[in-house]
Amino acid sequence: MGFFDDKQEWLAEVFAQYPEDRRRSALMPLLRRVQQEEGYVDFERMKEIAALVGTTATEVAGVMSFYSYYQGLPTGKYHIQVCRTLSCKLAGSDELWHTLSERLGILPGEVTADGRFSLQAVECLGSCHTGPVIQINDEHYVERVTKARLEALLEGLMQDKPLEEVRRSLPDEDKMGKATIELEGGEPS
């Protein structure tokens, strides 16, 4: 069975966003849907999408591989994306990355044995004032990932609690996501 067979309504909605003869515009939304639900986009799905938007599997592969979000290989249940660009780096994202990689025992492209985690270093997530930042799957950011917040986060995920619930229950979470963040202490470390 095709992935989209039972999603005709959703498909129609997506196609309606674009001119009738420009179905190809729906390529990215369709890829995203597969990525969200299956954790990666395999060749069969590429062919399915190609047929739906009226192009070839080659073109789908070309577009898909251009973006960092879509994955060609399976990812973990929690695909952790760590921002590594300058502002996050200044907030310690290198150390965060190494800690995560070591704790989970995986490198980019790998999935933990229990299928729970995979890791990807990504570029600037646009939350430079609340670094270091991580994003899990396609969910809201986890900002200012201090050591304490990381601990709590991993613990929640190990118990497979709903992601949003875990995120909201992290220490200091209510202070995150504001246009302005006040650092406590704020003195040089």
Partner: peptide, 19 residues
């Protein structure tokens, strides 16, 4: 016949086909 395309990006870009 769009049977050949660039895959990946930046310095990793290469020519490939899925057809």
């Amino acid at each position: 016949d769009q049977v050949l395309d660039f895959i990946e990006r930046a310095v990793h870009t290469f020519i490939g086909t899925a057809d």
